[in-house]
Design a protein around this nucleic acid. Sequence first.
DNA 1: CGTGATCATGACATTGGTGTCGTTCCAACG
DNA 2: CGTTGGAACGACACCAATGTCATGATCACG
Lengths: 344, 344
Amino acid sequence: MSTVYEVADRAGVSTATVSRVIHGSNLVHPDTRERVLAVIEELGYVPDGSAQGLSRRRKDIIGLAALERGVTEVGIEKTSPLFMDELVHAVESVLRGTDCSLLLTFGPAGEPFQRRIRSLSGKVDGLLVAEEVMPPGQLRALARRIPVVAIAGRRDETELDVVAVDNAAGMRVLAAHLIEDHGYRRLGFLAGPADSPDARERLEVFRRAIAEHPGCVLDPVLEGDFSEASGAAAARTLLALRPAPEVVACANDQMAIGVLLQLQESGASVSGGMAVTGFDDIYASRVVAPPLTTVGQPFRELGHRAAHRLRARIEDRELPAMTEILPTTCTIRASCGCPAPGAR
Amino acid sequence: MSTVYEVADRAGVSTATVSRVIHGSNLVHPDTRERVLAVIEELGYVPDGSAQGLSRRRKDIIGLAALERGVTEVGIEKTSPLFMDELVHAVESVLRGTDCSLLLTFGPAGEPFQRRIRSLSGKVDGLLVAEEVMPPGQLRALARRIPVVAIAGRRDETELDVVAVDNAAGMRVLAAHLIEDHGYRRLGFLAGPADSPDARERLEVFRRAIAEHPGCVLDPVLEGDFSEASGAAAARTLLALRPAPEVVACANDQMAIGVLLQLQESGASVSGGMAVTGFDDIYASRVVAPPLTTVGQPFRELGHRAAHRLRARIEDRELPAMTEILPTTCTIRASCGCPAPGAR
DNA sequence: CGTGATCATGACATTGGTGTCGTTCCAACG
DNA sequence: CGTTGGAACGACACCAATGTCATGATCACG
């Protein structure tokens, strides 16, 4: 592995000049630059990231830590956390234009994962944390050491930068659609894991919306874990229920897809049977039959904003913390009982 | 930001001792260890990754560079490269058990992306490259500087470690199923981008399989770019064709889904209409209606092997290069014209 | 009481780049 | 011809760890 010294040596210049050439400083003579570039090319020299990070006090790496749910160790359930994938691409596409790279880590909530994030925090200039990867206290402590932006986490946070999504608005529109347009009166809900603030909020808003409509009941409320399998399990429970709800709203799309598929397998169709809705609007939701009515999250926007905010905070650590709420869009397709649209 | 020096100072020991405590050396007195740990806790000290990287000559970071296709800049086509997402999770899950992290970068093929990979190569201990992100010559040059493992790239490579997938075997089984079990005689193919070795191989094998069966014709061969939109476009072309093929095999699942959806939208159903098959077996393929018959790639295995191989090579750079081919599995579902299975 | 072994510890060199500061050199100008 | 200004460049300190080597302390044993 060649170093600046070697390059400087061969080019007959000092290491400082090599550095200037690499970074395009105009304080170097064209001839000298030429010579240095030739040596760099010849040696295939690439500056060492660690050494650069040390002397510049910035590593040009940001981290993204996210929860991975429902992937069993044996790998039988292939369900990957699709929500996160969308986010990763969004963040990466922002960084692509810069000289900053993205360091990724997933894991199940818990102490080992928190340790991993801590040790990772030494390798990055800043951290994006998605969902509730660690208790708020620890998160704030982390944020005192390095810049942190929370994505889709709790909104009641004044010490931290947060970029979140307006679960409430989307869910309210969806509930109104189910109650007012379809006239459903008995509505079920398939909740997400209790450790997800988003999951909790979605249920709460749905509950309130129903309470505001006399004659409507929320029943049953089932608990899932965001996985497709837990959706399928819920569907089996629902099928046995008397009276069964007319519709079941799910806290995310993967569970909704699980419900949908299981209902079909059991011979119950959506038309005349049970309506299903989701939340997130992942890729598969457009594709499943019937296409899933759901509340869309602005993934790209979420990732973009979070990435930009983090970079801004890395630039200026004294920036006041703020939380940004992005709008959601209720996307009516067919699984709620609406006729399938002719054109997309 | 606190450093070893500060910790050492406060604990009244030398930096060497702090280092020993951090790395769990047993050459340190329990009392001393206790004292040092207390200071570390109090200061929230985390060792700086750059400094560690510099002195250990290893950064404990590996990179993954992959092509991103079909994502337009305006973000209208939300289709993300699902194949890659699966791979990312597989690789990440290997690294999770180690103290190594994953640095990610996507990009469209081209000179800027190659530059980015070069500069990234200074930040990592080794690189996983997926598909044809750069010309073979450059890739080999890169591999001479740092450990590189190619994933799903060209197989005719003796200088480089390669982990690839047996496209041929899966495709042959699929072709045999279409020709022998279903009795199709006029078969179309929707090819992938010409710069993808996998895409080329899939077409070639399909072509040969058909040539071996007298009475069968390969017509038409359309060209797509692995995106769902290009599948939809192909479907419109196919619909106008006389005679139309009985089945169209697609070089990946996303295009197959595009074909499927477009056919349905145009009123042509699969039963009695045109059969469709894919390649990859991504999540959405199980979920789409009718469920897609496809050739499954062992994503997890692919990621696992590649990650392990790279780590092995980082350990010992003199390891002989080898290429590993992983088996594919032809998964018959319903889109080929088979009856939908009662149980999954 | 001396010797050797073992354990705990610290001093210090090393790692590759960056950026500051000072120096050299040349041209232009009075 | 001396002075000045600025461009081009080099020496050097610094960054935060690691790991080697030397050393002091403690103890057992002869």
